[in-house]
Design a protein around this nucleic acid. Structure first.
Lengths: 195, 195
DNA sequence: CTCTCATGTCTAGCGGTGCTAGGATTCTTT
DNA sequence: AAAGAATCCTAGCACCGCTAGACATGAGAG
Protein backbone atom coordinates (compact mmCIF):
# COMPACT_ATOMS: atom_id res chain seq x y z
CA UNK A 1 0.00 0.00 0.00
CA UNK A 2 3.03 2.24 0.04
CA UNK A 3 2.77 2.88 -3.65
CA UNK A 4 -0.75 4.19 -3.18
CA UNK A 5 0.45 6.51 -0.46
CA UNK A 6 3.29 7.82 -2.56
CA UNK A 7 0.88 8.60 -5.36
CA UNK A 8 -1.46 10.40 -3.08
CA UNK A 9 1.44 12.39 -1.70
CA UNK A 10 2.54 13.38 -5.17
CA UNK A 11 -0.99 14.30 -6.10
CA UNK A 12 -1.37 16.51 -3.09
CA UNK A 13 1.99 18.02 -3.90
CA UNK A 14 0.87 18.85 -7.40
CA UNK A 15 -2.35 20.32 -6.13
CA UNK A 16 -0.37 22.65 -3.91
CA UNK A 17 1.74 23.57 -6.91
CA UNK A 18 -1.35 24.47 -8.90
CA UNK A 19 -2.76 26.69 -6.18
CA UNK A 20 0.51 28.43 -5.50
CA UNK A 21 1.22 28.98 -9.17
CA UNK A 22 -2.25 30.39 -9.71
CA UNK A 23 -1.67 32.78 -6.85
CA UNK A 24 1.72 33.85 -8.18
CA UNK A 25 0.30 34.52 -11.62
CA UNK A 26 -2.58 36.47 -10.14
CA UNK A 27 -0.34 38.60 -7.95
CA UNK A 28 1.95 39.32 -10.86
CA UNK A 29 -0.48 40.06 -13.68
CA UNK A 30 -3.96 40.00 -12.18
CA UNK A 31 -6.60 37.30 -12.23
CA UNK A 32 -7.47 37.95 -15.85
CA UNK A 33 -4.03 36.70 -16.78
CA UNK A 34 -4.60 33.43 -14.95
CA UNK A 35 -5.87 31.25 -17.76
CA UNK A 36 -6.04 27.49 -17.68
CA UNK A 37 -3.56 27.31 -20.53
CA UNK A 38 -0.96 29.53 -18.90
CA UNK A 39 -1.44 27.81 -15.59
CA UNK A 40 -1.05 24.38 -17.17
CA UNK A 41 2.09 25.44 -18.98
CA UNK A 42 3.59 26.84 -15.81
CA UNK A 43 3.14 23.65 -13.86
CA UNK A 44 4.36 21.69 -16.89
CA UNK A 45 1.21 19.63 -17.30
CA UNK A 46 -1.64 19.80 -19.75
CA UNK A 47 -4.94 21.52 -19.03
CA UNK A 48 -6.97 18.40 -18.25
CA UNK A 49 -4.70 17.75 -15.28
CA UNK A 50 -6.08 20.88 -13.67
CA UNK A 51 -9.55 19.49 -14.06
CA UNK A 52 -8.58 16.26 -12.37
CA UNK A 53 -7.85 18.32 -9.27
CA UNK A 54 -10.50 21.01 -9.49
CA UNK A 55 -13.92 21.19 -11.01
CA UNK A 56 -13.05 24.42 -12.80
CA UNK A 57 -11.28 27.73 -12.60
CA UNK A 58 -13.60 29.03 -9.92
CA UNK A 59 -12.63 26.21 -7.65
CA UNK A 60 -8.96 27.02 -8.14
CA UNK A 61 -9.64 30.61 -7.19
CA UNK A 62 -11.53 29.28 -4.21
CA UNK A 63 -8.50 27.26 -3.14
CA UNK A 64 -6.31 30.35 -3.38
CA UNK A 65 -8.90 32.21 -1.33
CA UNK A 66 -8.65 29.56 1.37
CA UNK A 67 -4.92 30.07 1.57
CA UNK A 68 -5.52 33.75 1.82
CA UNK A 69 -7.88 33.29 4.74
CA UNK A 70 -5.44 31.26 6.77
CA UNK A 71 -2.78 33.83 6.05
CA UNK A 72 -5.08 36.64 7.04
CA UNK A 73 -5.81 34.88 10.32
CA UNK A 74 -2.11 34.44 10.95
CA UNK A 75 -1.38 38.06 10.18
CA UNK A 76 -4.14 39.20 12.54
CA UNK A 77 -2.96 36.96 15.36
CA UNK A 78 0.64 37.98 14.89
CA UNK A 79 -0.33 41.65 15.02
CA UNK A 80 -2.30 41.10 18.21
CA UNK A 81 0.53 39.19 19.80
CA UNK A 82 3.06 41.83 18.88
CA UNK A 83 1.21 44.66 20.57
CA UNK A 84 1.04 45.57 24.25
CA UNK A 85 -2.29 46.57 25.74
CA UNK A 86 -5.80 46.38 24.35
CA UNK A 87 -5.85 49.70 22.55
CA UNK A 88 -2.59 48.94 20.78
CA UNK A 89 -3.80 45.46 19.89
CA UNK A 90 -6.97 46.74 18.30
CA UNK A 91 -5.09 49.29 16.23
CA UNK A 92 -2.43 46.78 15.27
CA UNK A 93 -4.93 44.19 14.03
CA UNK A 94 -6.84 46.79 12.06
CA UNK A 95 -3.64 48.07 10.47
CA UNK A 96 -2.54 44.53 9.72
CA UNK A 97 -5.83 43.92 7.94
CA UNK A 98 -5.53 47.03 5.83
CA UNK A 99 -1.93 46.19 5.00
CA UNK A 100 -2.91 42.69 4.02
CA UNK A 101 -5.51 43.98 1.63
CA UNK A 102 -3.19 46.54 0.15
CA UNK A 103 -0.24 44.25 -0.23
CA UNK A 104 -2.06 41.23 -1.62
CA UNK A 105 -4.75 42.64 -3.84
CA UNK A 106 -5.15 39.51 -5.94
CA UNK A 107 -5.37 37.32 -2.86
CA UNK A 108 -7.88 39.68 -1.33
CA UNK A 109 -9.96 39.68 -4.48
CA UNK A 110 -9.96 35.90 -4.51
CA UNK A 111 -11.56 35.96 -1.08
CA UNK A 112 -14.12 38.68 -1.55
CA UNK A 113 -14.71 39.91 -5.08
CA UNK A 114 -14.39 36.93 -7.36
CA UNK A 115 -16.93 34.47 -6.20
CA UNK A 116 -14.99 31.36 -5.49
CA UNK A 117 -18.20 30.60 -3.73
CA UNK A 118 -17.15 31.57 -0.22
CA UNK A 119 -20.09 31.88 2.09
CA UNK A 120 -19.73 33.65 5.37
CA UNK A 121 -22.21 33.46 8.19
CA UNK A 122 -23.36 30.00 7.34
CA UNK A 123 -22.78 26.38 8.23
CA UNK A 124 -20.99 25.81 4.96
CA UNK A 125 -18.56 28.59 5.71
CA UNK A 126 -15.10 27.12 5.12
CA UNK A 127 -12.94 26.61 8.16
CA UNK A 128 -10.14 29.05 7.29
CA UNK A 129 -12.65 31.86 6.85
CA UNK A 130 -14.25 31.09 10.18
CA UNK A 131 -10.83 31.13 11.73
CA UNK A 132 -9.97 34.50 10.22
CA UNK A 133 -13.15 35.88 11.71
CA UNK A 134 -12.32 34.24 15.03
CA UNK A 135 -8.91 35.89 15.03
CA UNK A 136 -10.52 39.31 14.75
CA UNK A 137 -13.23 38.43 17.19
CA UNK A 138 -10.60 37.67 19.80
CA UNK A 139 -9.41 41.26 19.75
CA UNK A 140 -12.34 43.35 18.53
CA UNK A 141 -14.82 41.48 20.71
CA UNK A 142 -13.02 42.85 23.74
CA UNK A 143 -13.99 46.42 22.94
CA UNK A 144 -17.59 45.83 21.92
CA UNK A 145 -18.87 47.54 25.03
CA UNK A 146 -21.73 46.63 27.32
CA UNK A 147 -24.85 45.09 25.86
CA UNK A 148 -23.36 44.66 22.41
CA UNK A 149 -22.78 41.20 21.07
CA UNK A 150 -19.05 40.76 20.36
CA UNK A 151 -19.72 39.03 17.04
CA UNK A 152 -22.01 41.81 15.88
CA UNK A 153 -19.43 44.39 16.83
CA UNK A 154 -16.72 42.47 15.02
CA UNK A 155 -18.90 42.33 11.94
CA UNK A 156 -19.25 46.09 11.99
CA UNK A 157 -15.52 46.46 12.43
CA UNK A 158 -14.75 44.03 9.66
CA UNK A 159 -17.25 45.65 7.37
CA UNK A 160 -15.54 48.97 7.88
CA UNK A 161 -12.11 47.54 7.20
CA UNK A 162 -13.32 45.75 4.10
CA UNK A 163 -14.90 48.88 2.71
CA UNK A 164 -11.72 50.75 3.51
CA UNK A 165 -9.62 48.28 1.54
CA UNK A 166 -11.78 48.19 -1.55
CA UNK A 167 -12.54 51.89 -1.72
CA UNK A 168 -8.96 52.81 -0.94
CA UNK A 169 -7.80 50.74 -3.85
CA UNK A 170 -10.25 52.24 -6.30
CA UNK A 171 -9.79 55.81 -5.10
CA UNK A 172 -6.17 55.59 -4.14
CA UNK A 173 -6.72 57.68 -1.07
CA UNK A 174 -3.35 58.57 0.41
CA UNK A 175 -2.25 56.55 3.40
CA UNK A 176 -2.29 59.47 5.77
CA UNK A 177 -6.05 59.79 5.47
CA UNK A 178 -6.54 56.06 5.84
CA UNK A 179 -4.86 56.32 9.20
CA UNK A 180 -7.04 59.25 10.18
CA UNK A 181 -10.16 57.35 9.24
CA UNK A 182 -9.05 54.39 11.26
CA UNK A 183 -8.41 56.56 14.29
CA UNK A 184 -11.77 58.21 13.95
CA UNK A 185 -13.48 54.86 13.71
CA UNK A 186 -11.70 53.25 16.63
CA UNK A 187 -11.99 56.37 18.75
CA UNK A 188 -15.75 56.39 18.52
CA UNK A 189 -16.65 52.75 18.07
CA UNK A 190 -14.38 50.92 20.46
CA UNK A 191 -15.16 50.88 24.18
CA UNK A 192 -12.04 50.34 26.20
CA UNK A 193 -12.70 49.04 29.68
CA UNK A 194 -10.94 50.94 32.45
CA UNK A 195 -7.92 49.06 33.77
CA UNK B 1 -27.88 71.09 -41.30
CA UNK B 2 -31.03 69.56 -39.86
CA UNK B 3 -30.13 66.20 -41.28
CA UNK B 4 -26.93 66.23 -39.28
CA UNK B 5 -28.85 67.01 -36.15
CA UNK B 6 -31.35 64.27 -36.71
CA UNK B 7 -28.54 61.77 -37.14
CA UNK B 8 -26.87 62.88 -33.98
CA UNK B 9 -30.14 62.59 -32.14
CA UNK B 10 -30.67 59.07 -33.38
CA UNK B 11 -27.13 58.16 -32.50
CA UNK B 12 -27.56 59.42 -28.96
CA UNK B 13 -30.81 57.54 -28.75
CA UNK B 14 -29.13 54.33 -29.78
CA UNK B 15 -26.37 54.88 -27.30
CA UNK B 16 -28.93 55.15 -24.53
CA UNK B 17 -30.50 51.96 -25.80
CA UNK B 18 -27.18 50.15 -25.58
CA UNK B 19 -26.51 51.24 -22.03
CA UNK B 20 -30.01 50.45 -20.83
CA UNK B 21 -30.03 47.07 -22.52
CA UNK B 22 -26.66 46.22 -21.03
CA UNK B 23 -27.99 47.10 -17.61
CA UNK B 24 -31.13 45.02 -18.07
CA UNK B 25 -29.15 42.02 -19.16
CA UNK B 26 -26.78 42.42 -16.24
CA UNK B 27 -29.58 42.73 -13.71
CA UNK B 28 -31.29 39.68 -15.10
CA UNK B 29 -28.42 37.24 -15.62
CA UNK B 30 -25.32 38.90 -14.21
CA UNK B 31 -22.49 40.71 -15.95
CA UNK B 32 -20.97 37.49 -17.25
CA UNK B 33 -24.06 37.07 -19.39
CA UNK B 34 -23.58 40.48 -20.95
CA UNK B 35 -21.61 39.59 -24.05
CA UNK B 36 -21.14 41.80 -27.05
CA UNK B 37 -22.99 39.29 -29.19
CA UNK B 38 -26.02 39.05 -26.96
CA UNK B 39 -26.07 42.78 -26.47
CA UNK B 40 -25.85 43.40 -30.20
CA UNK B 41 -28.65 40.97 -30.89
CA UNK B 42 -30.85 42.58 -28.29
CA UNK B 43 -30.52 46.05 -29.75
CA UNK B 44 -30.95 44.56 -33.22
CA UNK B 45 -27.65 45.76 -34.58
CA UNK B 46 -24.40 43.97 -35.25
CA UNK B 47 -21.46 43.95 -32.88
CA UNK B 48 -19.35 46.58 -34.65
CA UNK B 49 -22.07 49.12 -33.95
CA UNK B 50 -21.30 48.78 -30.25
CA UNK B 51 -17.71 49.66 -31.00
CA UNK B 52 -18.72 52.75 -32.89
CA UNK B 53 -20.21 54.06 -29.65
CA UNK B 54 -17.82 52.65 -27.08
CA UNK B 55 -14.19 51.68 -27.13
CA UNK B 56 -14.99 48.30 -25.64
CA UNK B 57 -17.03 46.37 -23.16
CA UNK B 58 -15.41 48.07 -20.18
CA UNK B 59 -16.55 51.42 -21.42
CA UNK B 60 -20.10 50.15 -21.70
CA UNK B 61 -19.95 48.94 -18.12
CA UNK B 62 -18.57 52.33 -17.20
CA UNK B 63 -21.54 54.02 -18.81
CA UNK B 64 -23.92 51.84 -16.83
CA UNK B 65 -21.96 52.70 -13.70
CA UNK B 66 -22.49 56.39 -14.41
CA UNK B 67 -26.22 55.88 -14.58
CA UNK B 68 -26.00 53.98 -11.32
CA UNK B 69 -24.21 56.87 -9.65
CA UNK B 70 -26.79 59.43 -10.60
CA UNK B 71 -29.51 57.09 -9.43
CA UNK B 72 -27.72 56.51 -6.16
CA UNK B 73 -27.47 60.25 -5.64
CA UNK B 74 -31.17 60.65 -6.34
CA UNK B 75 -32.09 57.84 -3.97
CA UNK B 76 -29.97 59.36 -1.23
CA UNK B 77 -31.44 62.83 -1.68
CA UNK B 78 -34.97 61.47 -1.79
CA UNK B 79 -34.40 59.57 1.43
CA UNK B 80 -33.06 62.66 3.13
CA UNK B 81 -35.95 64.76 1.94
CA UNK B 82 -38.48 62.21 3.08
CA UNK B 83 -37.31 62.14 6.68
CA UNK B 84 -37.94 64.59 9.47
CA UNK B 85 -35.09 65.55 11.76
CA UNK B 86 -31.36 64.93 11.51
CA UNK B 87 -31.28 61.54 13.20
CA UNK B 88 -34.04 60.21 10.97
CA UNK B 89 -32.36 61.66 7.92
CA UNK B 90 -29.07 59.95 8.65
CA UNK B 91 -30.74 56.60 9.20
CA UNK B 92 -32.91 57.02 6.13
CA UNK B 93 -29.98 57.77 3.84
CA UNK B 94 -27.99 54.87 5.21
CA UNK B 95 -30.92 52.51 4.75
CA UNK B 96 -31.49 53.83 1.26
CA UNK B 97 -27.88 53.11 0.39
CA UNK B 98 -28.07 49.56 1.68
CA UNK B 99 -31.32 49.00 -0.15
CA UNK B 100 -29.85 50.35 -3.33
CA UNK B 101 -26.94 47.94 -3.11
CA UNK B 102 -29.18 45.01 -2.31
CA UNK B 103 -31.76 45.71 -4.96
CA UNK B 104 -29.43 46.55 -7.83
CA UNK B 105 -26.48 44.22 -7.37
CA UNK B 106 -25.39 44.36 -10.99
CA UNK B 107 -25.56 48.13 -11.04
CA UNK B 108 -23.65 48.29 -7.78
CA UNK B 109 -20.99 45.98 -9.15
CA UNK B 110 -20.64 48.13 -12.22
CA UNK B 111 -19.75 51.05 -9.98
CA UNK B 112 -17.39 49.38 -7.56
CA UNK B 113 -16.28 45.88 -8.42
CA UNK B 114 -15.84 45.72 -12.15
CA UNK B 115 -13.31 48.33 -13.05
CA UNK B 116 -15.09 50.46 -15.53
CA UNK B 117 -12.23 52.71 -14.63
CA UNK B 118 -14.05 54.88 -12.10
CA UNK B 119 -11.66 56.86 -10.01
CA UNK B 120 -12.83 58.39 -6.79
CA UNK B 121 -10.92 61.02 -4.91
CA UNK B 122 -9.31 62.49 -7.96
CA UNK B 123 -9.69 65.25 -10.45
CA UNK B 124 -10.76 62.78 -13.09
CA UNK B 125 -13.55 61.52 -10.89
CA UNK B 126 -16.66 61.52 -13.04
CA UNK B 127 -19.32 64.05 -12.16
CA UNK B 128 -22.12 61.63 -11.19
CA UNK B 129 -19.86 59.90 -8.70
CA UNK B 130 -18.84 63.20 -7.16
CA UNK B 131 -22.49 64.08 -6.89
CA UNK B 132 -23.37 60.81 -5.17
CA UNK B 133 -20.69 61.56 -2.63
CA UNK B 134 -21.97 65.08 -2.25
CA UNK B 135 -25.47 63.79 -1.57
CA UNK B 136 -24.18 61.75 1.34
CA UNK B 137 -21.92 64.52 2.52
CA UNK B 138 -24.94 66.79 2.86
CA UNK B 139 -26.42 64.55 5.50
CA UNK B 140 -23.55 62.66 7.07
CA UNK B 141 -21.37 65.75 7.25
CA UNK B 142 -23.86 67.23 9.70
CA UNK B 143 -23.09 64.61 12.32
CA UNK B 144 -19.32 64.49 11.97
CA UNK B 145 -18.85 66.12 15.34
CA UNK B 146 -16.41 68.81 16.42
CA UNK B 147 -12.94 68.84 14.99
CA UNK B 148 -13.68 66.16 12.42
CA UNK B 149 -13.63 67.03 8.76
CA UNK B 150 -17.09 66.33 7.29
CA UNK B 151 -15.63 64.71 4.18
CA UNK B 152 -13.45 62.41 6.23
CA UNK B 153 -16.41 61.42 8.34
CA UNK B 154 -18.51 60.78 5.26
CA UNK B 155 -15.77 58.58 3.87
CA UNK B 156 -15.81 56.49 7.00
CA UNK B 157 -19.57 56.25 6.81
CA UNK B 158 -19.52 55.34 3.16
CA UNK B 159 -16.79 52.82 3.70
CA UNK B 160 -18.91 51.13 6.34
CA UNK B 161 -21.97 51.05 4.12
CA UNK B 162 -20.01 49.72 1.20
CA UNK B 163 -18.53 46.92 3.26
CA UNK B 164 -21.95 46.17 4.58
CA UNK B 165 -23.37 45.81 1.10
CA UNK B 166 -20.64 43.58 -0.28
CA UNK B 167 -20.26 41.37 2.77
CA UNK B 168 -23.98 41.11 3.27
CA UNK B 169 -24.37 39.85 -0.24
CA UNK B 170 -21.66 37.22 0.08
CA UNK B 171 -22.76 36.05 3.49
CA UNK B 172 -26.45 36.71 3.09
CA UNK B 173 -26.73 37.94 6.63
CA UNK B 174 -30.39 38.30 7.53
CA UNK B 175 -31.79 41.78 7.38
CA UNK B 176 -32.52 42.03 11.07
CA UNK B 177 -28.81 41.92 11.88
CA UNK B 178 -28.00 44.42 9.18
CA UNK B 179 -30.31 46.83 10.93
CA UNK B 180 -28.70 46.13 14.28
CA UNK B 181 -25.28 46.78 12.82
CA UNK B 182 -26.44 50.02 11.32
CA UNK B 183 -27.91 51.16 14.63
CA UNK B 184 -24.71 50.28 16.44
CA UNK B 185 -22.65 52.19 13.94
CA UNK B 186 -24.79 55.29 13.90
CA UNK B 187 -25.24 55.24 17.65
CA UNK B 188 -21.54 55.44 18.29
CA UNK B 189 -20.20 57.26 15.25
CA UNK B 190 -22.69 60.04 14.69
CA UNK B 191 -22.63 63.14 16.84
CA UNK B 192 -26.04 64.77 16.94
CA UNK B 193 -25.93 68.41 17.94
CA UNK B 194 -28.37 69.33 20.73
CA UNK B 195 -31.37 71.18 19.38
C1' DC C 1 -33.00 62.75 -62.14
C1' DT C 2 -28.73 60.56 -62.15
C1' DC C 3 -24.08 59.83 -60.86
C1' DT C 4 -20.47 60.02 -57.18
C1' DC C 5 -18.86 59.50 -53.08
C1' DA C 6 -18.96 59.20 -48.21
C1' DT C 7 -21.12 57.43 -44.42
C1' DG C 8 -22.87 53.71 -42.03
C1' DT C 9 -23.51 48.76 -41.37
C1' DC C 10 -22.74 43.86 -41.67
C1' DT C 11 -20.32 39.50 -42.67
C1' DA C 12 -16.66 36.88 -41.59
C1' DG C 13 -12.80 35.87 -39.07
C1' DC C 14 -8.73 36.33 -35.66
C1' DG C 15 -6.69 34.91 -31.44
C1' DG C 16 -8.06 33.84 -27.12
C1' DT C 17 -11.08 31.66 -23.29
C1' DG C 18 -12.99 27.57 -20.10
C1' DC C 19 -13.72 23.02 -20.56
C1' DT C 20 -13.95 17.90 -22.30
C1' DA C 21 -14.08 13.51 -25.15
C1' DG C 22 -11.27 9.87 -26.62
C1' DG C 23 -6.98 7.95 -27.87
C1' DA C 24 -2.25 7.02 -26.30
C1' DT C 25 0.95 5.91 -22.79
C1' DT C 26 2.67 4.54 -18.59
C1' DC C 27 2.62 1.86 -14.51
C1' DT C 28 0.78 -1.93 -11.31
C1' DT C 29 -0.55 -6.30 -10.72
C1' DT C 30 -1.24 -10.91 -11.71
C1' DA D 1 5.41 -11.08 -19.68
C1' DA D 2 0.77 -10.14 -20.47
C1' DA D 3 -3.46 -7.82 -18.83
C1' DG D 4 -5.56 -4.32 -16.79
C1' DA D 5 -6.05 0.05 -14.64
C1' DA D 6 -4.64 4.43 -13.90
C1' DT D 7 -2.83 8.52 -15.91
C1' DC D 8 -2.01 11.94 -19.22
C1' DC D 9 -2.13 14.53 -23.64
C1' DT D 10 -3.89 15.84 -28.22
C1' DA D 11 -7.41 17.87 -30.45
C1' DG D 12 -11.48 20.17 -30.56
C1' DC D 13 -16.01 22.38 -28.98
C1' DA D 14 -18.62 26.63 -28.23
C1' DC D 15 -18.00 30.91 -26.85
C1' DC D 16 -15.53 35.37 -25.80
C1' DG D 17 -13.88 40.49 -27.10
C1' DC D 18 -12.65 42.75 -30.97
C1' DT D 19 -11.71 44.24 -36.05
C1' DA D 20 -10.71 44.34 -41.23
C1' DG D 21 -12.83 44.70 -45.37
C1' DA D 22 -16.90 44.00 -48.32
C1' DC D 23 -21.29 45.94 -49.00
C1' DA D 24 -25.29 48.86 -49.03
C1' DT D 25 -27.52 53.05 -48.22
C1' DG D 26 -27.98 57.67 -48.10
C1' DA D 27 -26.65 62.85 -49.28
C1' DG D 28 -25.12 66.28 -52.33
C1' DA D 29 -23.42 67.90 -57.23
C1' DG D 30 -24.23 68.38 -61.93
Amino acid sequence: MSVQERKERERARRERLIVETARELAEKDGWDAVTTRRLAERIEYSQPVLYSHFRGKREIIGAVAMDGCTELAQVARAAAAGAEGLRAKVTAVARAYLDFGRRNPALYDAIFQLDGGLLFASDETPEPLKDAFAAMLEVFGEVAGDGVHPALFTEVFWTFLHGQVTLARAGRTPEEFTDQRLELFIGRMAVFPPD
